[in-house]
Simulated assay, not measured.
Amino acid sequence: MTTLIPLAVLLGSVGWVYQDASARARRGTPVYFSAGWIELSKAATWALGCLCLWIVILPLYLTCRRQAG
């Protein structure tokens, strides 16, 4: 049970990031980040990044989301 809660939080936040990034892209205000060869601009890229490096990508998404308006 103790491993299911963090997994649910991870999957829930990945799903939210994907849905939010998709909605923002449809409205014409995509969430975008670029540093060197790393580019995060599509909903699937944000979600995959969040799934792999949640502790880094989720705060980055929230910061870029706020800057995107």
Rank of each mutant, 00 (worst) to 15 (best):
R66M: 05
P59Y: 06
L4S: 07
Q67A: 12
G36S: 01
S41T: 01
W16A: 06
K42V: 07
Y18C: 06
V31F: 01
V17H: 12
V56N: 04
G49N: 11
K42P: 02
L60A: 03
G12A: 10
L7G: 06
V56L: 13
I57C: 02
A43M: 10
W46I: 00
R27Q: 07
F33N: 03
S34T: 04
G36T: 00
R24F: 02
E39N: 11
G15W: 15
L53E: 01
A8W: 15
L51T: 10
R66P: 02
P6N: 12
A23H: 06
A8E: 07
A47V: 01
R66C: 03
L7I: 11
G12V: 12
T63M: 13
L48H: 03
L48K: 08
L40N: 03
G49R: 09
L48T: 13
G69F: 10
L53V: 03
A23Q: 13
R26E: 15
L60T: 03
V9W: 13
G12M: 13
R24E: 05
W46L: 00
L4Y: 08
A35Q: 08
G28M: 10
G49K: 04
S13F: 12
S34K: 08
I5E: 15
E39R: 15
V14W: 11
W37Y: 06
V14N: 13
A23D: 08
A21G: 00
Y61F: 14
A43Q: 10
A43N: 08
T63H: 13
I57K: 02
T2P: 07
W37D: 09
Y32V: 06
A35P: 01
L40D: 03
G12Q: 09
L7D: 09
C50E: 03
L4K: 10
L62F: 12
T45H: 04
G15N: 14
T45S: 11
T29R: 14
S13G: 09
L58C: 09
I55K: 06
I38W: 10
F33R: 05
L62P: 07
L40I: 04
G12H: 08
I57S: 00
A68L: 09
L11K: 05
G36W: 00
T45D: 06
L51C: 06
C50G: 15
Q19V: 13
A35N: 12
D20N: 13
V31H: 07
L60G: 02
